[in-house]
Amino acid sequence: MDRFGAMKTFVRVAELGTLSAAARALGLTQPAVSQQIAALEKHLDVRLLHRSTRRLALTEGGESYYQHARQILQAVDEAEESANARSSALQGNLRVHGPVGFGQMHLAPIIIAFQRLHPDLTIELVLDDRLADLIAEGVDVAVRLGDLKSSDLIARKVATFERILVASPAYIADHGQPETPDDLIRHRYVRFSWSPQGESVPLIGPRGPVTAIVRSTFLANNAFVLNEVLCAGLGIGGVQAPLVQSMLDSGRLVRILPQYSYAPMDIHVVYASARFLPRKVRAFIDHLASNFRQVPGLRSMRVPEMNA
């Protein structure tokens, strides 16, 4: 039995919860994964997994073995990373996850530049507005917008940006401008279909937080579609400043109620391990933070790592 290989297989099974998911992640067949786990249990003379029809669970011995095995595998990764550090070339695979609108407009060009700097890397960019399971989906680093839920992941805030109300000059010519947040109810409103606030718009003004009630007449689940709808004069809407800066500069959109805005939105990079951060991931995060300084509408920053 290849003890090291079986250890790696067991750790993936423990993290992903099923033999089939681990087999896909490792590029093995499910019977091969099952055989490795059985051989490892026989070698250790302990049952590692409770098997059920839906999902596997660790036994007490399995949980203890998993914690030690994960540390061993991390130590091996660190040793290999240290040995390869003499070479400046980054190699291997880098899987990045990010939100669709921001990712397509600003993240993709930054990653393209990173690929040019490190041609020996194989990079995969996955754009999706849902929150990816980094471990289960093999994501090395994710870019996330907004507040983070508590988890075992590590997060580093790299930038923040404004979210503002805008409309087109044509809309203003036809419908006039609201003078206060309360006036928004008398206007056509454009928003994300999955907005958790629904028809309530939380704003921050000169006297603090206020909530405006709106009447949505166009909804979509894509930022680029909503921005085009706003440019077409179909209503007022809240937007991420970095996605519309060029439209503001050209005059296609103008800011509405400039003394009011949504709460600023933070951008975090998120990754799975605090103890061992591969050189390729560290280099990518540094590249990302550096290039965010060039994005109009973003305010970049460096703060200590924290649990996400």
Rank of each mutant, 00 (worst) to 15 (best):
R47P: 00
H50I: 10
L49G: 06
S64P: 00
L49H: 03
A57S: 14
R70W: 08
H50E: 10
H68M: 14
Q71C: 05
R130P: 00
L48S: 05
R70Y: 07
S64I: 12
Q115E: 13
L90A: 04
I111R: 05
T122S: 13
L107K: 04
Y65H: 15
H106E: 07
Q71P: 00
S64V: 14
R95F: 08
A142S: 15
R95C: 07
Y65K: 08
T53N: 08
H106R: 04
R54E: 10
D77N: 13
G92H: 08
I135P: 00
G101E: 05
G61R: 06
G62F: 04
H118A: 02
R116N: 11
P119K: 06
Q67H: 12
N93Q: 13
V139C: 10
G146Q: 05
R70V: 15
A38V: 02
E80S: 00
A89L: 11
V126N: 00
L49Q: 03
L125P: 00
L117K: 15
I37G: 00
Y66I: 06
V126W: 00
P119H: 08
T53C: 00
L90I: 06
A38G: 01
A57Y: 12
L107A: 08
E80V: 05
H43M: 07
P99H: 06
L94W: 05
Q67I: 11
L56I: 03
E78Q: 10
A75L: 14
D129H: 00
L56C: 02
G62R: 04
L49N: 03
G92L: 11
D129Y: 03
A69N: 09
L49E: 04
T59L: 07
P99F: 01
L145E: 10
I72D: 12
A136P: 01
A39T: 04
A75N: 12
A132D: 04
Q104K: 08
L48G: 05
I111H: 05
R51A: 08
L117Y: 09
E60W: 07
Q91I: 06
R70I: 08
I37A: 03
Y65E: 12
V139P: 01
A38T: 09
G101S: 13
R51C: 05
R116L: 12
A136N: 11
G61Q: 13
V143Y: 02
I112N: 11
V76Q: 12
Q67Y: 09
Q35E: 11
A38Y: 04
Q36N: 03
G62Y: 03
A85V: 02
D147S: 14
T59W: 02
I72F: 15
G101C: 07
I110T: 10
D77L: 12
Q91R: 15
N84Y: 01
F114A: 06
D140K: 09
A39K: 11
G103Q: 07
G62P: 08
S82A: 14
E80G: 11
S82V: 07
G146S: 06
A79W: 10
R47N: 04
L40N: 06
E41I: 06
V96Y: 03
L40K: 03
V46Q: 15
R130G: 02
Y66A: 05
Q74T: 08
G138F: 05
N84G: 06
Y66R: 14
I135C: 06
Q115S: 13
L58A: 09
A75M: 12
V143L: 15
H97I: 01
